[in-house]
Amino acid sequence: MTQSKGNGTAAGEGSFALKVGLAEMIKGGVIMDVTTVEQAKIAEDAGAAAVMALERVPADIRKDGGVARMAAIEIVRSIQEAVTIPVMAKARIGHFVEARILETLGVDFIDESEVLTPADEANHIDKQAFKVPFVCGCRNLGEALRRIGEGAAMIRTKGEAGTGNIVEAVRHMRTVMTQMRRLTTLGDEELMHEAKELGAPYDLVRQVARTGEMPVPNFAAGGIATPADASLMMHLGAQAVFVGSGIFKSSDPSKTGSAIVRAVTHFQDYEELARLSENLGDPMAGLEMESLAEDSLLQSRGW
């Protein structure tokens, strides 16, 4: 609180409160994966609260294989110029240089994402060292709190990206919510043991035990393909949803995107959900989890 700035006293830019603050603004909204300017404009017109710039959507990464990296700089820049809503971009797990480059470009949020090929098998990015906010994926509460401990300002379920199958996102959200509820039932003297079991920072475990809530906004991702999927995740406790392949792998991206946005707002209104789900054309083709080899699972990346 020392830096003087104009007529006010600045508490600094890039504070945790400001990072979480932007995540708060995206609540009740949909973040859509886009790979081109055209897609970004379609997403914005459909009512996306933010777009995620990346080179290939997860379904194509899954299909084509190879190393998936941060999006090309020119793609990120052109998308930033094309839309007025926040622009997010993905960096590889542990690849703090990709993250620094994205920060230099002025992206609004970085997703340290298991959808890309991890750069570090042990360490995630030290997100507290950045001014730009980060979102990270999780499969359970321990993973979520480890990421928040590193500085993540938003958490999302990992689900299983690129499958159009909601089952893993449901599993991860239910696990997180159940684990948070359980913490609220424990005595203070039990929390250190629980922190050890979860592999989570003790202070954050205590905070969740006290509030029963995730310390940062808690969103859903990984397999959302229909308005009903989006509504389901909101019912389970998500405060917003990410849609990756589900929009631009559907037969009518504009209509599907619009419908998912409205399904998040009206997630408890089943008549509206029925109306939104009508005449949407074909959703993306889905994959059964049993058809996926263990080593092709994106969710096992990171820890």
Binding site: M1, K5, G6, N7, G8, T9, A10, A11, G12, E13, G14, S15, A17, L18, G21, L22, Q80, P86, V87, E103, G106, V107, D108, F109, K131, V132, P133
Partner: peptide, 12 residues
């Protein structure tokens, strides 16, 4: 500007 220009100011 964008998020990097987001800031906290104590103002009268």
């Amino acid at each position: 500007g964008r998020q990097l220009q987001s800031t906290t100011l104590t103002l009268p």
